[in-house]
Design a protein around this nucleic acid. Sequence first.
DNA 1: GTGAAAGCGCTAACAG
DNA 2: CTGTTAGCGCTTTCAC
Lengths: 331, 331
Amino acid sequence: MTPQRASVKDVAAAAGVSVGTVSNVLNRPDTVAAKTRARVEQAMAELNFHRNASARQLRAGVSRTVGAIVMDVGNPFYTELARGIEDRLAIDDHTLILCSSDDDPRREARFLRLLAEQGVRGVLVTPMSTTKDRLADLRRLGIPSVLMDSNSRQHASVGVDHVSGGEQAIRHLLEQGHRRILFLAGSPELQQTRHRLRGAAEAVQAAGLNPSDVLRVITLPSQTANDGQQGLIEALESGWGPTAVFCMNDIVALGAMRELRRRGLSVPADMAVVGYDDLFLAAELMTPLTSVRQPMRQLGWAAADLLLTETPHELFKPELIVRASSDHRRA
Amino acid sequence: MTPQRASVKDVAAAAGVSVGTVSNVLNRPDTVAAKTRARVEQAMAELNFHRNASARQLRAGVSRTVGAIVMDVGNPFYTELARGIEDRLAIDDHTLILCSSDDDPRREARFLRLLAEQGVRGVLVTPMSTTKDRLADLRRLGIPSVLMDSNSRQHASVGVDHVSGGEQAIRHLLEQGHRRILFLAGSPELQQTRHRLRGAAEAVQAAGLNPSDVLRVITLPSQTANDGQQGLIEALESGWGPTAVFCMNDIVALGAMRELRRRGLSVPADMAVVGYDDLFLAAELMTPLTSVRQPMRQLGWAAADLLLTETPHELFKPELIVRASSDHRRA
DNA sequence: GTGAAAGCGCTAACAG
DNA sequence: CTGTTAGCGCTTTCAC
């Protein structure tokens, strides 16, 4: 039985060199003579040597892990984002610790603490209302952070032009003849919400109409299918009688459509539905869902790249994909 | 500006105690006098102290992170599994590093190396063909592992009774009158595949029929929507003329249904479809999908629990949920 | 090109 | 109950 865990010291002994040389083989291979290097590498292989990341990090002061806190890993949007992050990190041999805040500030705080203790190289966050103060704490610890899916002047961020996204969605619905449009929105503290709403209002004005007549907003506590369903119930019972609903994301839209179905209302005839994100499942739903497509992987990739290299990235452009849920001709 | 990162030494100085006492406050609070403890805790708060997990782990030899390697984080099955894991880990203040092997042995190997270097407390894996040898390497390093969604006598594991799952699915299809049933399967090296196939054969025999007449298997390279679609194309072009298809998971089923739709074939009239996992989206698809439900969160929870406490868990029972994709009466 | 040695922040053993 | 101290495995000067 080989020893539990070989250290540089063991490798050094086996190869008949000093630990310094072993370290050089690991970190600056070209400064060590080919023959010695070969001997050391063989010893490493024989002993099944794995360098100890804790010791390395403790000494070197830098870590090769990055944390990401997203709002809901159950939503494929965030797993796609995570894939983009991971792909970028892999290039520099970093690892991702993925955390799901579930829209709960306490969970977010806990993960942030955990990540700080891990001494991660940096943190990527999809911001919620409470996020900003907490990131200031991190910065004081010397841990940089990048906001995802949000653009900010004060803070490193990668974002999508949600004004445009909101504008495209609402313009499309107006073109379809809708004049009472419900927006199932996230918290107004989320930039995504504010920007999409602004875009929506711009589209209404551009059509020569009055936003406060055409648009009504319901703020969802969180952005899940159940919340979408509840939001729609609330809207239907308010008596306003919207003919179309624009949803904060596809999962919310899925919940809304579930409720419409439950009531025997048809999409898009009784109610047109537009989602956001264009998840892979949007095209496969009972009524294929019109949705605003975001470049999810690129967004994650860009966030990780910004953290690692401080290369700023342009604002990504979303794109409306029209399907049957909002278009009579396709229904 | 506070210092970048306060250490126990800084806290000790600020509180006028020794580092040993600070360590005691952290790890054995009850051995410290209430007054001293209060002073130390205040100093920690003032200095924004976060213990350094690397140093802690290096010294104490134990880590508070656990790695999980799943086949595809894009598949909600695995994110649900991850949630179960994380919920269990949170109880003992551990963190999860989630990795997606994408069915690629090289990625799996890379993550296993990374996790070993991190010195994780243990690793949870949904096994693929190449996994077992690699876990032996880990064990030699003293890192325990648990197989998820698989049961094994030689190895710690938590599993689901896939023989029963396969049996329920096929029995249902036989009851619906199907006599040529296609199985879009994973690699035969996966236990899930073998067990479901065994259950399928048992159902056929119990009906007094011959499995080799009734069942045909197509092995998919991987278990994605695209592979499901390709598999179905292959089956349709083989000329055998199946009237029903049993899919390795819901995402594969989604791909298969996409192809059926593309060809103008109707579900279930031209082809009945049964999936596996019963993801949240199964009920929302264009044709609501019959599926074998697995207790995904519990499975993850149990796996993490087994790793942490060595409590063995019983085999979970899957349950068939019948919807329109396999049942004329509901279509 | 290689070796010797200091020290990263923390914990645990022991002394007081 | 609190303080002192050795040392986890590694990287990194600085000599040789």
